[in-house]
């Protein structure tokens, strides 16, 4: 006969721990499910045009005529004035390193031997605004905050309208070395 028991004491309710082997060796019944999840992310008006600009080798920004802020990546709305931004402006391909990190893990969190250098690049002419990107042609000893950098683009035929159309930013030849510890000029957010 089936038994009906009272609730067991709390220390009995410790669950049923399983090891990885229990699953892969079929010790317990399992159902595997690999859902086919796909997305299509629409970039919107501002970022869409920004990405379209990258495909053409241009860095496009959006200017608010009221406060003068030049937003990059562009927004259709000024975050300072709470009003629509006014005009598109094209920026140059140079900037300064606002901050960077020496990164020893890949996007899947595995360890890598050669570090990458994710950095915030203040793009020249955008009053301190900038984008998150990668530094290249640097080492952990040569990468510096305040360093002047320039964009290294993919060849036009390989550009897809993605932020990766810029391969990385490298130290600008002939630029003066940054003052140690100094924040780059601009920065009026």
């Amino acid at each position: 006969m089936a038994a009906t028991k009272a609730m067991p004491p709390a220390d009995e309710l410790k669950g049923t721990p399983l090891e990885h082997e229990d699953l892969v060796k079929g010790k317990v019944i399992t159902v595997r499910h690999n859902p086919d999840l796909r997305y299509r992310w629409a970039a919107g008006v501002a970022i869409g045009r920004f990405l379209g600009g990258l495909k053409e080798g241009k860095i496009l920004a959006r200017k608010c005529e009221m406060c003068g802020t030049i937003g990059v990546p562009p927004r259709m709305f000024c975050e300072v004035c709470f009003r629509p931004t006014d005009v598109w402006v094209e920026l140059g391909h140079t900037g300064r390193v606002n901050t960077f990190s020496t990164c020893y893990i890949a996007t899947d969190a595995t360890r890598v031997k050669d570090p990458s250098f994710p950095a915030v690049i203040e793009i020249d002419g955008a009053n301190g605004n900038g984008i998150l990107h990668l530094l290249g042609e640097v080492t952990k000893d040569t990468a510096k905050i305040g360093m002047e950098v320039e964009a290294v683009w993919k060849p036009a035929a390989e550009r897809q309208g993605l932020i990766t159309d810029i391969r990385y930013w490298r130290p600008r030849k002939g630029a003066a070395p940054p003052k140690s510890g100094g924040r780059s000029k601009g920065g009026s957010r």
């Binding site: 699953l23 019944i29 159902v31 690999n34 859902p35 997305y39 299509r40 970039a43 970022i47």
Partner: peptide, 16 residues
């Protein structure tokens, strides 16, 4: 309109 396509690599093992 500019868009980016992608997938989510999600895998489940349900136990009974």
């Amino acid at each position: 309109m500019h868009h980016v396509d992608g997938t989510f690599p999600v895998q489940f093992i349900y136990t009974a």
